[in-house]
Design a binder for these strands. Sequence first.
DNA 1: TTGTAAGCGTTATCAG
DNA 2: CTGATAACGCTTACAA
Lengths: 319, 319
Amino acid sequence: MPTIKDVAKKAGVSISTASYAMNNLPNVHPDTKERILLAAKELNYYPNGIARNLKTKRTGNIGVFIYGFAGPIFSDVLEGIRQKLQENNFNIVVSSGKSSSNLLKERQVDGAIIFDGELSDDILITYANYGMPLYVLDRVLSGSNIYTSVIDNEGLVYHFIRQMVQRGYRDFAYLSGPSDAFNNNHRYDGFLQALKDEQIETHQFFHGDFTIKGGYQIGLEYLKMTKRPRFVYCANDESAIGFMQALRESGVKIPEEVAVAGFDNIYLGEYITPKLTTIGIDHIEWGKAVAQAIVDIVTKQKSKDVGHPAGSVIMRESC
Amino acid sequence: MPTIKDVAKKAGVSISTASYAMNNLPNVHPDTKERILLAAKELNYYPNGIARNLKTKRTGNIGVFIYGFAGPIFSDVLEGIRQKLQENNFNIVVSSGKSSSNLLKERQVDGAIIFDGELSDDILITYANYGMPLYVLDRVLSGSNIYTSVIDNEGLVYHFIRQMVQRGYRDFAYLSGPSDAFNNNHRYDGFLQALKDEQIETHQFFHGDFTIKGGYQIGLEYLKMTKRPRFVYCANDESAIGFMQALRESGVKIPEEVAVAGFDNIYLGEYITPKLTTIGIDHIEWGKAVAQAIVDIVTKQKSKDVGHPAGSVIMRESC
DNA sequence: TTGTAAGCGTTATCAG
DNA sequence: CTGATAACGCTTACAA
C-alpha cells in the first residue's frame, strides 16, 4: 500500500512538498503540484487516516452510540445524522455495546451522539472532561462538553391527553414502560398533570415493559377486568400494538369500546387495523439538528442549542 | 488527557516498561507492574488507540457498510455481527454513504462486511488487493481477499413455488423488484425454474420496486384486470404488503380469492391482516457466522466458508 | 517555492 | 528485568 513517501519519490520532491500539494496549500508551484498529484493518482495513493489523525489530533469521525441495532425508532435519527455529517465532511461511525466505550476511550472519534442507556453517566462525564464533546439524547445530563436534547415527553403527552378529555373521554388508564425508563416516567408525568388539570381524580395503571409481548399480556389482563377503562394510553407504540392485538383476538372493538393511543409513531402503527393514533417525533430533522450542532462544536467550539425535537399528534383510527 | 509518558513518570519507570506492564508482557517484575498499573488507574489512563493503531497496523475495528439506516431487514444481521465481534474483542463500526469508503481508504478498519450496492466493485477490489479483507453480502464478487456469502434466493423461491404447485395453485404472477437488483433477479430465476419444472407455461409479470407504495400501485392495477392470477408471488415483503393493502381496501379476500407471499420475513408481516406468508433468513446467525469468519481472516489469515445463510418458509395466513 | 527535521503516542528491537 | 531509541505515516514549524 503506497505511502506519501512513495508519492514524493515518484514525483521527485520531498515528503513535505508532497503533503503540501495534496492538502492544497497555496505555497506550491503549479507544475510541481501537478506532478505530485499525477504520481499520487498513478500509485493510487490515499493518505493513511490513522497517521494523519495522530498528528492532527482530529479523526473526522463522529460516533453515534446506540443501545442496540434492533430498535425501529432509531433508523430515522441515524439517517438524519448521516446526511448532515456527510454534508459537513465528517464520517458517521455507529456503534453499540462495548465497542462504543472503546471508540470513545481510544479517541477514535472527535465527538459522539449518545443514545444508549448502557453508557453510564460516569464514563460520559469523564471523557467529556477530557475534551470530547458529547450530545446526549436519552437523558438529561450536564457537565462541561456535555450537551443534551431530549424529547418533550411530558409536554406532548400532556397536551394530547387534555385534547382527549375535550373529546369526552374521562376514564383513563396508563400502560407504562419500565419504571426506570426516562421516556416512560416523563410521559407518565405529562399524563398525570393533564388529568390533574382536568380535575380527573382517578385512573388505572398497568405495568408494562415497552414490548409488544408485554402489551399483549396486559391486553389479556384487561379483558378479565369487570370495570374496563375507556381510554388506554400506552407509553409507547409497541405496548399499544400488543395490547390491541389481544383485544382484537377477543373481538373487542377499537375505538368503539376502548380507545388506544401510543407514542413514537413507529412504522408498524400505520399498517395494523385499526391504524394506531400516536405521538410522533420528527426524527430525521432531530438527527440533522444534533449532527449540525456537534459539528459546530468540534469545528468552531460554538454550540447552538438544539432544544426539544419537534413532535406532533398523528391522529389515526384507534381513538 | 494522560499519556503513557505520564504513567511512566508517575511510576518512576521508562516508557517502554510502562508499555510492557500494561500489555501484560511476562518480562516485567510483579512489583513494578503493580506500581505502573496503580499509576495508570490513578491517572485514569487509557491508551490512545490512534497511536497504537499506527504502530501496530491494526485497529481492532471491523467496518459494516450498509446502504442506509432505514431498511428494516438489516437490524438483525447487525445485531448478530455485533455480538460475535464483541466476543472476539473487535469493535463494530457501522457506516453508510461516503463515510464507508472513507473509513476503508483511510484504513480505519481491519476488514469490512459490505451490504451496500453503492460501494462499487472497483473500489472493493482495489482495497482488498491492498490487503483489506472484505466480506460481501449483497452480490457475488471474487478476487484476492474478497469473500462472499449471499442468500440462496433462487433455491428458496424455487422450492417454495413448487410447494405451492403441489397445493394446487397453477396460475401465478411474479411481482418483481427493480430489474437491476441482485436479489430480485435470482428470486425470479427460482420462480421461473419452478414453473418450468412443473410444466406450467405461462405466468404474469408485474414490474415493482421493492417498496410498499410500489406494491400498492400494482395492487390497483391488479384490481382492474379481468383475468386475475390466483397466486401473486412478490419479490419482497414490502411489495407484498402494499399489494395486499390495495386488495384489502377493495374487499378482495386473501387467500380465498388471491394468494400472496413475499420474501424477507420483515417484522411487519406478522402484524398485518392476514398475516403474510414469506421466506425468511436467519439473520442473527448469518451475522454471527460472517463476523466470526472475518475475525478469523484478520487474526489467523484462515477463512472458513460461510456458504448461504439458512432460510425457511414461514407459513402464515396469506396463502 | 522547496526541503529538513521534529513530533503526535504508541510498540518493538536491542542492549544493558 | 529495564531502558534507550527507532519507527509507524503523516503534518507543520522553520530554514534554506
